[in-house]
Nucleic acid binder design. Structure first.
Lengths: 223, 223
DNA sequence: ACCTGAACACCGTTCAAGT
DNA sequence: ACCTGAACACCGTTCAAGT
């Protein structure tokens, strides 16, 4: 796994494949076949190289995904951050949500512990903005990190559910079939309405509610 | 995939393997080798049968996991539900969290759209309790479903992150290495403290904050 | 009706060897 | 230094055939 910006003294066979080409091929596979089909072997086939060659340019599959995420983040323009600190938190969390919404596979890699240390600066401004907003609201540093983590859990959970729901057959009706009405009256009452209700996007409102709750818990006597 | 409780007129070769034996074997594999190792082939090997035989008793891998979840839920005792409706929401969500915390693989299957319709009654009382609590707090039915979904996203997100963090090498220090201090001052200030802060369990407090936020948003003028 | 091995169409990763 | 095919150790699932 050589660095592209290696020191002067190069020797040996010149590279035929660059890291940039690998990332480009990965993007092509994702765009054409969907991210489930992005495998090391298929990527190699796309580039017309041996599967093993890929391992000379990226450490492993996870490394490939992290590189792809950082590249994507670098290309995504940052939204304007409002003056209101709560607004900044909301805008930053929504930016995470929107970015990952189109790339649900990224969420998979981003659940790993310490993932945040592997991200580059363009991907980290969102975390910074959330910390900044929470601190300006009066949170301690630890509380601000808690706010970030809690919003992260919520956001990633929503994306996972959305990701595994899309591309599935529409749930059949009757929905709660054979449910015990006396034991589960409310679920029975919702019944076939469930799929309809569950298809609504509630992230923006849920996020707002969560931010309110987190801040008022952290600062019970705020001005 | 024959039903165990099939009607009287049975003919042909008697079954050597039952669905119950399959689930038992699956539990053994999970307990001994970890859930990542629960594959159809390994399960068959555990039982000393051909991999293809498994498909006579369960539809596919996902079906196997759903059966396992329903079995687990049936064995888990239900906690006492407090009289306070908010308390009921918290207790039910915490029960989901605790149950899935030990079975992170279940979360994978439970993100699928319409998964809730495939659960049996013992697994559904938690959803019922959350709806019940929200309705008693004055929510409409749609709002109550929103409360459930939002808490579900948060809970499943926390479990995913926890699951992929456990069993990993402890993140190296310095944590945010080579970070741009002028661009990301708060992240730089947290620095090596991040892994310590991130290892704290914040689910209970986050849940409480979220419930507060959701209910006060749904009922702005509540008594 | 139930069970089977063989086969299909894949995975990620390592290793010794070639250029 | 870079690239390779072969190999290792797996996957889920289907299908035609056996008992």
């Amino acid at each position: 796994m050589p660095r592209s910006n290696s020191p002067q003294g190069r020797t040996g066979r010149p590279p035929l494949t660059s890291r940039a080409q690998i990332l480009e091929g990965a993007r092509r596979v994702i765009d054409r076949d969907g991210w489930e089909k992005l495998t090391v072997r298929r990527l190699a086939a796309e580039l017309g190289i041996g599967a093993t060659t890929v391992y000379h340019h990226v450490k492993d599959r996870e490394d490939l995904l992290i590189l792809l995420i950082n590249e994507k983040a670098a290309q995504t323009p940052r939204p304007e951050l409002p003056a209101d600190p709560r607004g900044r938190i909301i805008v930053a969390a929504t930016a995470i949500h929107d970015t990952l919404g189109g790339w649900p596979w990224a969420a998979e890699v981003l659940t790993a512990d310490g993932f945040i240390a592997r991200l580059d600066e363009p991907a980290l401004w969102m975390a910074e903005a959330i910390l900044d907003g929470a601190l300006e609201c009066g949170c301690t540093r630890a509380q601000a990190v808690d706010v970030f983590r809690n919003l992260w859990y919520y956001t990633i959970g929503e994306i996972f559910v959305r990701a595994s729901s899309s591309g599935r057959p529409v749930p059949k009706t009757p929905f709660f079939d054979g449910i015990d009405e006396s034991e589960l009256p409310h679920l029975a009452a919702v019944g076939d309405e469930w799929p309809v209700l569950a298809s609504r996007d509630i992230y923006p409102e849920g996020l707002r509610a969560f931010v309110e709750g987190l801040l008022s818990q952290a600062l019970p006597e705020a001005s």
